Simulated scan of single mutants.
Amino acid sequence: MTERPTTIVELSAGQVEYRLERRGGPVVVMLHGGHMRAGLTLDERVYAEADVSVLAPSRPGYGRTPLSTGTSVSGFADVIAELCRHLGIERVAASVGISAGGPTAVALAARHPALVERLITQAAVGPLPYPDPRTRLLAGLMFSPWTEGVTWGGMRALLRRSPERGLRQLLAGLSALPPDRALAELSPQQRTQLVWLFSRMRSGSGFRNDMRPSEDLTSQVSQPTLVIASRRDGAVPFAHAEALVAGISRVQLVESQANHHFYEFAADWPAITEAIRAFLATDPAS
């Protein structure tokens, strides 16, 4: 795994960092979750294999997109629409929201139906309070502007000294199963990939911003929607997927059997990718 190069553009709302990987097919907008930025590519393999172009912006507070650029999910959805116009992208095959990127993906579909043809959410935060009060308090302490660098520095040091211990500690909050069991089901290659990813994550001011309440726009989503979720995801409860399904009119739920928050590393990921490919091939007007 390598971090991909990104570009900075100045739009009417401010500076945005993005990565655009053009391929032969249509474009999806990829909205990654917490602690991620445009240069990191987790969960994009299915789109590369399907020859789909990916536009991945860093959300507010992450990477080189300042928090002042469209702080709210609705505000940043409008920024993404402007970014698409700037890049000459007239149609988006799907707005894809992973984890904490889910609310922005929903907002992009709801606010810009002429641009977005479909909506895909994966392990995504839905229209429910998030996170729970205990997690909110802990995250506020660990990822404040004064502590987030220390938090990630300590985690990187632990991952260097004892990768398995570090992964076990991280999986405790990312799986509904005991962390030893979740870790046992990851291959050596997947463990190496996760160590690499966690060693490059940063929260900036973005993660604390992700915990702010956002408007429920699910009833305004008119596009066909694919909701992918696991009941054993320890980071985003399955109830969020159920709330998305309840609020969106044209929706299909696909249950992943992942034992953690990283569905791409689950045994049933090939079946999930087939569902994504089939969904992208459907007529959005039907």
Rank of each mutant, 00 (worst) to 15 (best):
D51T: 03
P57V: 01
M1N: 05
V52H: 06
V54R: 03
V52Y: 08
P26K: 11
P26Y: 07
E10M: 13
R23H: 01
L20Y: 09
V16A: 14
S58W: 04
I8Q: 02
M36W: 05
A38P: 00
L20A: 03
R45K: 13
S58I: 00
T41Y: 02
E44G: 07
A38D: 01
H32I: 03
L31R: 02
P5F: 09
S53I: 09
R22L: 14
P26N: 09
L11F: 02
V46N: 08
S58Y: 01
L40P: 05
M1S: 14
A48R: 13
M30I: 08
G24V: 10
H32P: 14
V29D: 01
V46P: 03
Q15Y: 00
P5E: 11
P57I: 06
S58R: 01
L55Y: 11
L55P: 03
E49N: 15
V16C: 04
R45Q: 15
V28W: 07
I8C: 04
V27L: 14
A13C: 01
H35K: 07
R19E: 00
S12M: 04
E3G: 04
V9R: 06
E3T: 15
V46Q: 06
V29K: 06
R45I: 05
R4H: 08
A38T: 04
H32Y: 07
R4T: 00
V29L: 12
S58T: 03
